[in-house]
Amino acid sequence: MENINIEATERSPEIHFDFGSNTFALKGESYPEDVSTFFGPVIGALEEHLSGLNGASVTFTFDLIYFNSSTAKVLMGLFDTLDEAAENGNDVSIIWSYEEDDDNMEELGEEFGEDLEHAKFEMKAYAKK
């Protein structure tokens, strides 16, 4: 599958999906006008790719500054998809990167990570940029 590289806009995150190395990343702000239009195709591609994997090592990094509630729903779905890939015999690591003083991002990371049953989860706080 062809890699996906989408530049960030004021309201949508940078997307890097490398299907060869199985490294995936979302970075920046996310409150697009229509989450389905923005995320639908890329997540569709990711799901298709993951469903064909077995015994692979997969890393997904979430490095988000802000996301709205519609995006939160998309992220929740992504966590489920990644957990499923782990259940199906892949080594899946999810990294939740957040600014160290961001209470909300920290809390959401903990809450989202708590529900994972198979994937590995790591919280990474970084110093104020």
Partner: peptide, 26 residues
């Protein structure tokens, strides 16, 4: 509130809602 937020994120979008239906909870 957090429980309801997560439940709603995982659930079906309410009829007539164009967003996640979680705006007020957020």
């Amino acid at each position: 509130l957090m429980k309801l937020y997560k439940m709603t994120l995982k659930g079906e979008t309410p009829v007539g809602s164009k967003g996640a239906g979680v705006g007020f909870i957020d």
